[in-house]
Structures are given as structure tokens and as C-alpha cells.
Design a protein around this nucleic acid. Structure first.
Lengths: 197, 197
DNA sequence: ACGAAAAAAGTGAACGTTCATTCTTTTTTT
DNA sequence: AAAAAAAGAATGAACGTTCACTTTTTTCGT
């Protein structure tokens, strides 16, 4: 679609401006004119890079989600044990959510409100496949409890969401020990525990 | 503010219409005109019941949050043991989130996007005080681990959010056993575990 | 290596539409 | 008949998008 002799800087500035403004005002309260102004660009220029406002937010979502999953799986290898892999991925997700608050807040908004279209949502979910594969392997090996796949997300990823939002709002400052505690709790919930039933 | 000889039915219809439309389209993509139409009311009539659109969504949020916490704490009594109280509240929260999806989805949206104003957000949080009191009591009695108060929300409430969203989208159907598993996992994470460290 | 012509990138103003809110009139209640 | 409630039409502001135009970059014959 994009023939792209166009400035990558300008496109990046547009993406950044979109994230910042959507974080602060929500998608529908961020006019194209403000995105353009923050990116030092004419409103019309946006339409050289994106089809329309919806296409803009769809693409920003998928790209940010890709950055998120790239980070989460960066140092992971399928040759790791389930325990190692889970701990590694979980902690990198935590790290991302707590340090890349710009991106994380944007993803949280898109994931909880009808902003992006269904195809982009699916594209985002598909990036999490390595984690689902690891989860399956853990169940096959008997390391992880026999529970629904969907609980994977709920147990391992979600507990940090609230912390992230609170940190972003300046309510609390998260310490390394908090992360370690949160991880231990998540893992204890998931692993097969021989002294439990 | 409201002198209220006005119809309570009309007000209820406006609240219901707001929740439904915000759930489906997001706050800023739901015009006053559509809320009025769905509630079988003139746009002008809304301004007899609410100051403006922002005031409308603020009040709907606080009222829905109150319904949520009333339900969560309905059968709870501070004379219960920490274990009993925690299980009861957790399961009622789960029940609400999974069965009152209209209200839960609306709350999730308001909690994750800059829709409502800060005062309304605080008003919503303040309703959760009984749970925080229980948490403190659990720590005093040594039943609950010495971890940050903020983790309370992350551990005990949040794991259901993802499930709720998925269920609402028709991706999965949640069974009673799933709830029981999720509760056990949350509680196992929270309680002091003598065979841990 | 040069510069004119063509193409691409970028722009500010303007368009039609939609929005929240107000104004004026009608209906309902007391 | 007076007052409150509700309605619908009206209004000005703001929005996404397009248009006509300018500026910058690339192409290419010499």
C-alpha cells in the first residue's frame, strides 16, 4: 500500500502523536487536526500515510502489539524448559508493561474499548502464539494444571494491568520485589502442585 | 440538583441506553441524539436530568459501580473469618462480572480509558473499602502474605477481566468449574503458604 | 554534470456533516 | 390557568476528509 519514498520520520511522529493523544484523551476525543499539529504536519499529510483515521489507529495498534510481543519473546527459545520459558516471558511482559507505559496504556485502551476493528484485534492476538505453545507443552509435560487455555492470559498477564494503570496515574511506585512477588504468585497458581488435591 | 418530579422511568431508560451504546460504540462515538432515540426521549430532555454529556457518563459510572459493590458485599459481614469473607466476596465479584456483562463491560471501559473525570473515579474506588479492610485484617492475623495493598486488586479482581471480555465477545463459555479454579488460584496466591520460603 | 520537466510529497483552506447544547413551542400535570 | 416537563427545530462549533495548489525530489536527455 505505502510506496514509501515518504519520510519514515514523519510516519513515526504521527504514530507517536497518536499514542500520546489517545492515551490522554481517548481515540474519539483526539481529532486528526491535533495529531497533525503534534506531529508538525498538515492534516492532509496524514492521508498520504494512512487511508483514514480508523486505518491509522488500526495500524498503530497492530504495530505497538508487535513491539510488545517482540519484546516479550526476545530472549525466549522453545528449547527452554517450561518453567524457564514461563518465568522469562512473564517477567519481560511485566517489564514492558511497567516501563513502556506509553505503549501499554495504549494497548489497554484498545483492548477494552471498541476502538479498533476485529481484524486488527485478531492480528494482535495471533502474535501471542509462542506463549500459547509453551502453555500447551507445559500441560503435556504435566508441569501446568489442566485448565482452560483462556486462563493463561488471565493468570499470567492480567494481574499486572491494574498495577500498570495505577503506576501510570502516579498512585504507586512499583519496586523490583513487587514484580518478583507477582511472578511467584502467578506461577504458583499455574503450576501443578503435588500437595494440592 | 434534580428536583425530581420527573419520571424515574425516563431516567432509567437514559442510563440503560447510555450503557448499551457506550458498550457497543465507545463513549465519544455515542452521540446524545442516539441515547435520546434509544431511550424514546428528546435530546433536550436529557438536559432536564443531567447537566451535560460528561455529567451523564460520570453519574452512570458511579451508579453502576455502586450496584457492583452492593452486589459484591451483599452477603458479607465483617464478623466472618478472613477466608470466608475473601471467598464470598471474590465469588460474588466473579458472578457479577460474568453474569452482569452489560454493567461490567461498561465499568471496564471507564476504568481503562479517560472517559470519566477524576472525582468520579475516586468515588468509585471508595466503594471498595470493605474489601481493603478485610485485606488489612488478613495481614494482621497473618493469614495473608505481607504484600502491597495494591496487589489486592491485581490478584483478586483482575484475573477475571480477560475472561469476561472474551465471554462477552462470544469467544468462550465460562463454566462453574472455571470460576472455582480461578478462585482457588487467586486464594493460593494470596494466602500465607507455610511450605513456601 | 546540468537543468528542465515530471512525479511525488506536502500544504492550508474549504466542504459537508455531525455533534452538544439551547431556544421556542407544545403537552402534561397540578 | 399556571407551572413543570417534554419535544423538535435551530445553532454554532468541531470534526474527518477532500481539493487545488506549492514545494521538494527524482528522472533523464544533453
Amino acid at each position: 500500500m505505502a510506496k514509501l519514498q515518504k519520510s519514515i520520520d514523519k510516519r513515526d511522529a504521527l504514530v507517536r502523536a497518536t499514542i500520546d493523544l489517545v492515551n490522554n484523551n481517548g481515540f474519539h476525543a483526539t481529532p486528526i487536526s491535533k495529531i497533525a499539529k503534534l506531529a508538525n504536519v498538515s492534516p492532509a499529510t496524514i492521508y498520504l500515510y494512512f487511508d483514514n483515521k480508523q486505518d491509522l489507529v488500526n495500524k498503530v495498534y497492530v504495530e505497538v502489539k508487535a513491539v510488545f510481543t517482540d519484546y516479550a519473546f526476545k530472549t525466549y527459545s522453545p528449547t527452554m524448559t517450561v518453567e524457564e520459558g514461563f518465568e522469562l516471558i512473564w517477567k519481560r511482559i511485566a517489564d514492558f508493561k511497567l516501563n513502556q507505559t506509553r505503549e501499554s496504556l495504549f494497548l489497554a485502551q484498545c483492548d477494552n474499548a471498541p476502538i479498533i476493528d476485529e481484524a486488527s484485534r485478531q492480528a494482535g492476538i495471533s502474535h501471542l502464539k509462542p506463549l500459547l505453545d509453551l502453555w500447551h507443552r507445559g500441560k503435556e509435560e504435566g508441569v501446568i494444571n489442566e485448565i482452560s487455555d483462556y486462563l493463561l492470559y488471565a493468570y499470567s498477564i492480567n494481574p499486572l494491568s491494574f498495577l500498570m494503570v495505577m503506576q501510570q496515574r502516579g498512585v504507586l511506585k512499583i519496586e523490583a520485589s513487587d514484580i518478583e512477588q507477582a511472578y511467584q504468585a502467578a506461577w504458583n497458581s499455574i503450576k501443578k502442585c503435588t500437595n494440592n488435591g
